[in-house]
Structure formats: structure tokens, C-alpha cells
């Protein structure tokens, strides 16, 4: 990290002094109190902290699903905090991938169709190319024989793999995962985690995993601890 040019190339997302208040009036909470961080390509980052410390709040800000009350976010060198929704929405489509605790799949769509949803929106591939890419992704997440299964006929672990596949669909620079294994048994949890780690290595994507599992966090390249709205 001595070469600044090199650093610029590697930093996918940079956040400076993020503040976020949530709720109204007497319920108002200062959830984030000046959080700054950088996420690097090819690295897996963990955010750990007790429940209610503001991990999800941070992830929504970084994922352009919410806006900070104060502070700045640069994604791939572009300032995003003041950008219009019309600019932020296509950025989410092309450069961000989300995995949540619950998979949020379209239940009546097959595994392959769920993975194709972001591709269809991006609209850069032909139908055949999209199918090919979906098959390839299914293979990467270990579901090569389940592509034509409807999402609600898949097991919890399989559904979460499809959600990971969907996050990979447009080959984004940054994958944000909010307790992606929180709802799974040990075995599935481990395999999803190692899947995310492998992808970061292979595809040079930046991965941010929110978790309260310290064992998992130790295996990551960087670990941020969020305590009471502050990173330590």
C-alpha cells in the first residue's frame, strides 16, 4: 500500500465520516457516528458488532439503498451520496451485488431466471448469452443441476446460493452481504462463506460481509468492528 496509484486502482469503495440518524422524534437514534472505511478489490472485509450496533444501516448506505445524513461515499471513484436516484439505480444494477439474510428470491421464477433478473435489466447480453451466463454462475455456486427448479422448491441453503448467484450476475465490483449465513445451519453457512471468499479471490471483487460470527470474521482479509455507531 505504498503506491497511491495502485491504491486508487484497488479501492472499489471509499466512505468518509458517515452519519445516520434513524427514527422520528423521541425514537431518534444516532445509528452511525462518523464511519470511514475503504473496500479493496479482491479482498474480503467483515463488519462485526453486536446486534443493533448499526451494521445493516452502514450496509444500506454503502449499497446506495439509503443516504447518509452527513459524509461521502465514492464508488469506483464516483461521488454517490448526492447523486440522483436515476443515477444511483443503474449503478446498483451494474456495480453492486446484494446478499441478505433472507434470500428475497422471486418464488415463481426458476433458479436460472432469478440469476438472470439483473442481466435482463442491464440488457447487454442476448437471451442465449444470458442463459449461458446463468448456467456458468449456477456452476460456480454449485447448483449446476438445479437451474430449472422453481426457487420455492429449493432448500434454504440452495436458495441462498441462488441469491449469491444473482449478486454475481452482472459481475459487479462490490458484493455486500448482510448476515448471509445468519439463517443457515453450520454446514451451509460455511459453504456460503467460502463461496464468497473464493469469488473475491477469483474475480477480484471487493466483498463486504456483515456478520456477528467472529470465527468467520477472523478468516477475512480485513475486519471492522462496529461498536455503538463507531468503527474501531
Amino acid at each position: 500500500m505504498t503506491d497511491t496509484a495502485h491504491e486508487k486502482n484497488c479501492v472499489v469503495l471509499r466512505a468518509e465520516n458517515l452519519h445516520r440518524w434513524l427514527g422520528e422524534d423521541e425514537n431518534r437514534v444516532h445509528a452511525l457516528k462518523g464511519v470511514s472505511l475503504s473496500l479493496e478489490a479482491g479482498k474480503v472485509h467483515a463488519v462485526v458488532g453486536p446486534s443493533g450496533c448499526g451494521k445493516s444501516t452502514l450496509l444500506y448506505l454503502l449499497g446506495l439503498l439509503d443516504r447518509p445524513d452527513e459524509g461521502d461515499i465514492w464508488l469506483l471513484g464516483k461521488h454517490m451520496t448526492k447523486a440522483s436516484e436515476a443515477r444511483r439505480t443503474p449503478v446498483r444494477n451494474e456495480h453492486l451485488g446484494f446478499v441478505f439474510q433472507f434470500h428475497f428470491l422471486m418464488p415463481e421464477f426458476t433458479a436460472a431466471e432469478n440469476i438472470m433478473l439483473p442481466m435482463r435489466k442491464l440488457n447487454r447480453l442476448t437471451e442465449i448469452q444470458m442463459k449461458e451466463r446463468a448456467d456458468q454462475i449456477l456452476q460456480e455456486v454449485g447448483l449446476e443441476d438445479k437451474g430449472q427448479r422453481l426457487a420455492y422448491h429449493l432448500s434454504g441453503g440452495e436458495q441462498q446460493r441462488v441469491a449469491v448467484g444473482r449478486a454475481l450476475a452482472n459481475d459487479p465490483g462490490l458484493i455486500l452481504a448482510d448476515e448471509p449465513t445468519g439463517n443457515l445451519d453450520q454446514q451451509n453457512s460455511d459453504s456460503i462463506f467460502s463461496l464468497l471468499c473464493r469469488l473475491a479471490g477469483e474475480k477480484k471483487q471487493a466483498v463486504l460481509i456483515v456478520t456477528h460470527n467472529l470465527d468467520l470474521a477472523r478468516q477475512c482479509d480485513h475486519t471492522f468492528s462496529l461498536v455503538d455507531g463507531n468503527l474501531t
Partner: peptide, 10 residues
């Protein structure tokens, strides 16, 4: 919500 999060517009 998920469609919106993966880039579908209003």
C-alpha cells in the same frame, strides 16, 4: 424491494 435494489427503476 429486491428488484429495486438490483437496479429496476420505479
Amino acid at each position: 424491494a429486491i428488484l429495486r435494489s438490483i437496479g429496476y427503476t420505479p
